[in-house]
Simulated assay, not measured.
Amino acid sequence: MSLKNIKLVATDLDGTFLKNDRSISFENLKALQLLGEKKILRVVATGRNLRKVMEVIPVEVPFDYIVYSSGAGIYNWTDKKHIYHKNINRDTSNLLIEYFRKKDYNFYAFDEAPENHRLWFHRGQQECEEFNLYFSFHNSFSEQLPTNSELKNGLCQFMLIIPEDEEKFASLKTEIEAQSDEIRVIRSSSPVTKGYIWVEVFQSDVSKGHGVSHLCNLLGVNQRETIGIGNDYNDLDLLYFTAFSFLTENAPPELKNKFTPVPSNENDAFAYAVKPLLQ
């Protein structure tokens, strides 16, 4: 299958499509517009919730769909309509809340998508600077988790924050996933502070790859007609799904050589990856 037959391009935002200051380069915006002229679908696949996407992507930027919260939801950017979401059910959500409390972890619990910009928090005894910093960015939508009552609805996701430690993450992933078959743990490098891992817990069918796959099925796009561009661990499912997959130069060293390399997000990685489509 040639690159000339591509019908859908999916890109991560932070560290990939966006520059470090969260701006959009002229070359990336131009490439996005030219893709549209060629009737190629332009998809965001991001760990950001939809409200956070709207903070960095102005309404006039010509994307077609947003796969947000690592695939927990899909939003039609043109029609302004929610078309899909997948959440952790109420029983499993309450089970995990109780488990995390007993372990005295610092954690966040996010409301069901598409309202998952709202969240609850639980502070453990061990202080975590990154946990507090994250809270400072989201405190207008945060409240302390009630101690004596169960949630009446499910959740989109949980997030724990740990210092960067491969063995600790692997152990924690195994520990958490053992609590329920309904969940999966995704790793993300903190975009806030270097040296921390975000341990994100989602419903087991949630990933950027699953989200883009679901969108392809809805739109009649064959997997062989897709491109993916990313830069981090939480992009792996996307990059394993898409037929042609590109990894930015600013990706973690251990991910290098797995996918076709492109320049960093500071040097128009997106525009570079899609350039063959525009010739």
Rank of each mutant, 00 (worst) to 15 (best):
K168G: 11
S171R: 12
V192S: 02
Q179T: 15
R187K: 14
F169D: 05
E177F: 02
M159Y: 03
D181Y: 04
K194I: 14
P163K: 09
Q157C: 07
P191C: 02
I162Q: 03
E167L: 14
A170Q: 10
P163A: 04
G195E: 14
G195I: 15
Y196D: 06
V192I: 14
M159N: 10
I161R: 00
Q179E: 15
S188M: 09
A178Y: 03
K173S: 08
D181G: 11
E175S: 12
R187W: 04
E177C: 06
Q179A: 09
C156T: 11
V185L: 05
I176V: 06
L160N: 08
P163H: 02
L172C: 10
R184F: 05
E164R: 12
V185E: 08
Q179L: 12
V199N: 03
I161P: 05
A178E: 07
E167P: 00
M159R: 09
P191H: 00
I186H: 09
L160T: 00
R187P: 01
I176P: 03
R184N: 13
A178M: 00
I162E: 06
L172E: 07
G195D: 12
A170M: 09
A178S: 13
K168P: 00
V199C: 06
P163E: 01
T193H: 10
D165N: 15
I197A: 08
V192E: 06
S190C: 08
S180C: 02
E167H: 10
R184S: 13
S188R: 09
Q157M: 10
I186P: 04
I197H: 15
I183H: 07
R187Y: 04
P163V: 10
F169W: 03
S190M: 01
I183W: 10
T174Y: 04
W198A: 09
A178P: 05
E167F: 11
V192T: 13
I176S: 05
A178F: 06
D181L: 07
I197P: 00
I186W: 01
I197F: 15
S190Y: 00
L172T: 08
D181I: 04
I186D: 04
D181R: 07
E177G: 08
M159Q: 11
Y196M: 07
E167D: 14
S189A: 13
S188W: 00
L160I: 07
I161V: 14
T193A: 11
L172R: 05
K168V: 15
S171Y: 04
E164V: 08
A178V: 04
A170G: 00
C156R: 01
E177D: 07
M159W: 05
Q157V: 00
V185K: 07
W198H: 13
E175Y: 02
W198C: 10
I186S: 08
F169P: 08
R187E: 01
D165I: 12
K173Y: 02
S189Q: 12
E177N: 04
